[in-house]
Structure formats: C-alpha cells, structure tokens
C-alpha cells in the first residue's frame, strides 16, 4: 500500500499539484467573492427595509435548504441559457459556489452583528454618531470577534466543497484523483494522496485562523 502510494505520487505528482492549484484558486475566489457578496446580503438583511429583508431571507433560505450539489447542477444548466455570452462549465460552477458560500457567510455576519449588545448601538447613537461611523467604529470591531471563529469554519467548509466541482470535471484536486484513478485503476492510494493534500491545506488554514483569533484577543486585553 505504502509503496503504491509513493509510486503513484512520484509518477503523477504534477497531476495532483495541478489539481491543488485548481482547488486553491477555486477556494480563494469563492472565499473572497463569497465574503463580499455575503457581507452585502447581511447588510441588506440587517437594513430593516422590509423588501430587502424579505428578499434576503428567501435567498438565504433556499440556498441553505437545498443540497449544494443540486445547486451546482442547477446553475450549470441554467446559467449558459440566461446570460447573453458564452460561459464555461468552470465559470458556472465558480458562480454557483460563490452564491452558495455567500448565503452561509451572510448568516454568520448577521448573527455576529446582532450579538453585539444593543446598549452599544444606543450609546453610539446617543453620542450623535452617524450610522456609518457607528457600524465602522463601534459595532463591526466588536462583531468581528463573534464572527471570526464561525467564519473560519465556513472557509474550511468552502475549501472542502470545491471538491464537488469534480462532478463537472473542473480542474481541481478531486478531479485529479479521478484522472489518476482512471489511468491506473488504483483508487484507494489515489484517494489517500488526495485526502492528505486536503488535510495539509485545511490544517494550514485552521492554524492561520487560530493565530489571527488569538492576536485579536490579545489586542483586547
């Protein structure tokens, strides 16, 4: 077993590394754009404008209530038909991943903001702070601490979920597994290699987030 793993790695390392690059790229774009979109959705949901609140509630409800694989299929089928320009499979899947991640991230941000004591809002308002300054200087700095651990979990989930893109043969790690497996018929060793690479990525991400969290807490004391 060990020999076959090592053998597979020496022969096909470039396939896995290419897959890793694909996974990192997919993850990065999903995390960054998912966070931007998620923040926007969270702000809309917190806006107290009922129409925005209603739209975002439905948006979040559907995306969190339907399997992500189904969503990938849906966007993969529907997007090329509704946009007036050519979209690659990869582009469809990236958009679907971003939209899915945004719903989870929006909920994390909303909960973090709402967990800040109401007295903080009242104190800021009573001092005459504008809504913008209140958010920037009083609410968000405190919300970040509530948000960060949950957001870290979301990011790690996002990295792992990019593996679903392999269903559509988007270049990433899980697709690399399939490629090697198809060429060699060695399924388990290829799975182990792929799993180890995922583990390295998520472990680095987790310890990075933990370090950042600790630093935030030290600043507070």
């Amino acid at each position: 077993m060990i020999e076959s793993i090592i053998g597979l790695w020496t022969k096909y390392d470039y396939v896995y590394l290419n897959g890793l690059i694909g996974t990192l790229w997919l993850s990065a774009i999903t995390v960054v754009l998912g966070t931007l979109l998620g923040t926007l959705i969270a702000i809309m949901k917190l806006s107290k404008i009922w129409i925005l609140e209603a739209i975002t509630t439905i948006y979040i409800g559907i995306l969190r209530g339907v399997p992500i694989l189904l969503q990938l299929y849906f966007f993969w089928l529907i997007l090329p038909k509704v946009v007036p320009f050519a979209l690659s499979d990869t582009a469809c899947i990236v958009i679907a991943l971003i939209i899915n991640a945004s719903s989870y991230i929006a909920e994390v941000i909303r909960a973090g903001v709402q967990a800040v004591d109401k007295g903080q809002t009242e104190a800021a308002k009573s001092l005459g702070l504008s809504n913008r300054n209140m958010m920037r200087k009083v609410i968000l700095p405190q919300a970040i601490k509530n948000i960060l651990p949950a957001l870290g979990n979301e990011y790690i989930t996002t990295v792992k979920q990019t593996s679903l893109a392999s269903v559509f043969f988007v270049a990433e790690l899980m697709t690399s597994y399939k490629t090697v497996q198809a060429a060699t018929f060695l399924a388990v060793p290829s799975l182990v290699i792929t799993g180890l690479i995922y583990l390295v990525v998520t472990t680095i991400l987790t310890s990075g987030l933990n370090m950042y969290e600790r630093r935030m807490q030290i600043n507070e004391r």
Binding site: A123, S126, L127, G128, L129
Partner: peptide, 17 residues
C-alpha cells in the same frame, strides 16, 4: 445625529465601548 450631539445620555448599564 446632529441634535443628539447636544444631548448627552448616560445609561443604567454604562454601555462603554
């Protein structure tokens, strides 16, 4: 906001930042 700047308020629960 402009008018609240002229009206100071102190709360039971302090609400310091």
């Amino acid at each position: 906001d402009k008018h609240r700047q002229k009206i100071g308020m102190v709360f039971q629960s302090f609400n310091v930042f």
